[in-house]
Every structure is written in C-alpha cells, then in structure tokens.
Design a protein around this nucleic acid. Structure first.
Length: 272
DNA sequence: AATCGTTCCTGATAGC
DNA sequence: TGCTATCAGGAACGAT
C-alpha cells in the first residue's frame, strides 16, 4: 500500500513528467472518489488549468494548479496515479481521468475505492493536513521530538507510530520494518521505551524510509509508480510479508499475528 | 485526551 | 469445477 516512500516516488515521477501539462478535460468515473464533492464544480474548477508542480505531505500528494488551488490526493490502499498515452488501455479501475493536452492523460485508478481527491484553496485548511506530525525526513523530526511524542502514550508503539499526528507518512509496512531494525517489539508500550531505544527507533525510521525511496517503494500488492512500474523494496523487507521465514538478523522464525485488527509481523528472536 | 472498535470497498484466495 | 466466505487495511468517526 502506498506509504511515504511510494507517494514520494510517484511525486517525483509526476514532477518530472506532468509538471506544466494542461488539463483539457476531467472525467469523473467514480464520484465517490471526490469525498462528497459534486463532480460538476470539481471538473469546472480544473478544466483548462495547468499542473504547476507536485509536492507531498505525509501520504498526501499535493498537485498545485496554476489557479492557485491544490488538488489533494490520498491513495489509501490501492490507489495509483498513472501517467500514460491515450493510446494505452485505460486501467479497469480508473476512477478519475485527467485528459492532458498533447495526447497524454493522468489516471487516478483505485481498486477498493478508498482513495480520495479534493480541491483546496489552501491545503493547510484541511484537518487531514494540518493535524499531521513532522515529516520524518525533515529537519524537525529529531530523536528528542520522537521521544516527546511517545511520552504519555500508553498504547503499543506500533499503534502510536501509525498515528499520523505523531509522525507523518508511516503505514503498516514501514512501522514494522523500522521496529525490526530498532530491535523493538511492536507490542511495547510507547511511553515505556528507554532513551537509547527511542534514538534507535528514530534512526531506523529515517534509514528505512531513505532505503525504500531509493528502491522506488514496495510493490507487495497493487502499488505502482507514475509509469505503472513496480518498486523493489519488498525484496529488502526484513519482517513484512515474511511470515514463517528466517529472520535475516538472528535466524528466528518471523511470526504474523492479527494485532488491533492489523496484520503484524515481527521477529520474536531479536525484537524485545 | 487517548484509545478502541467499526466502517468503507472489491479482487484475490482459501475452503468446501 | 464452481461457489461462497474471508481477508487485506488508512483514516474518519463515535463511544468510552
């Protein structure tokens, strides 16, 4: 599923290939993807505009239009943003299609229809954006800041790291991968981590995200980049989707358990 | 204020 | 073989 590294990969693809493109027409094939907004004002505001640039905040893709408005996209579990030629077959799960001048299009496809997009004059006015915690690859995300955020949180560290107001952009895959690298069990109480463990966790989060971006993300299931290609970080996973396999660090068998309604992978041998 | 369960959705898959 | 039940999960939401 698209988390920070996947959304960042798509952002870079679109920045390189779609920036400057003019939208001739918007096709709304699934109005539900527009988060309750009626299709008519949506298409009307976008038609004829130019994509000025692509930014990212957490897992949100921010598409700036020349009108000053921003198209805020969240891919959730199965969303993809595919830049293709009009000669290419339209994906079966195409939900919103931006027909671009010059024979190309930008397709928002989404199997499970959980993904959303909305138009905002100022993205910071959206709760989903202003409530976000620090960018884990930004200067404000320090070990001290992570330690502060975990203080007073009695829930399991895995759940707390999935809270987007603590750190922005982590999902199930990278939380579990970071916890393994840090040697910390997902079930540990967040506020119970020692300072050295918090420091290790901070380093692990940064390291795993950087490595995943370098590998263009994890294509465990439906994730694809802006050209429809797979990422390859999944082959570097140490716990996620590795149930029953040997831990690459200590050799113990990786276990999977439903924990708080989510599949949770960890190594009982080296995660304490 | 934090936390927990529920809900949304549909293709893939396991089980019979 | 073919059908059906189950599963995957980010985040909003309501209840506690």
């Amino acid at each position: 599923m698209p988390e920070l590294p996947e959304v960042e990969t798509v952002r870079r693809d679109l920045q390189r290939r779609v920036r400057g493109a003019v939208i001739e027409r918007v096709e709304v094939r699934n109005p539900g993807s527009l988060r309750g907004l009626a299709p008519r004002p949506f298409t009307g505001e976008i038609r004829g505009r130019r994509f000025d640039g692509f930014a990212r905040r957490g897992k949100h893709l921010l598409c700036a239009l020349c009108s000053g408005d921003t198209l805020v996209v969240h891919l959730r579990m199965t969303g993809v943003m595919l830049h293709q030629s009009v000669r290419d077959p339209l994906p079966a799960m195409a939900r919103i299609v931006f027909h671009l001048r010059g024979g190309r299009r930008l397709v928002f496809a989404d199997q499970r229809k959980f993904g959303t997009m909305e138009l905002a004059a100022d993205p910071l006015s959206l709760p989903a954006i202003w409530k976000l915690g620090p960018e884990p690859l930004g200067r404000t995300f320090t070990a001290a800041r992570l330690r502060d955020a975990l203080q007073g949180r009695t829930g399991p560290v895995k759940s707390v790291l999935l809270d987007q107001s603590v750190v922005a952009g982590l999902g199930n895959i990278y939380v579990l991968e970071a916890l393994h690298r840090a040697g910390i069990s997902p079930k540990r109480k967040a506020c119970g981590l020692r300072q050295a463990e918090t420091a290790r966790l901070h380093r692990s989060i940064v390291a795993v995200l950087r490595a995943a971006i370098a590998a263009r993300g994890s294509s465990v299931d439906t994730y694809r980049d802006g050209q429809g290609k797979r990422g390859w970080f999944q082959v570097q996973h140490r716990v996620y989707d590795r149930e029953g396999k040997a831990c690459k660090r200590c050799g113990a068998v990786i276990v999977k358990e439903q924990f708080r309604g989510r599949g949770t992978y960890w190594c009982p041998g080296c995660q304490r």
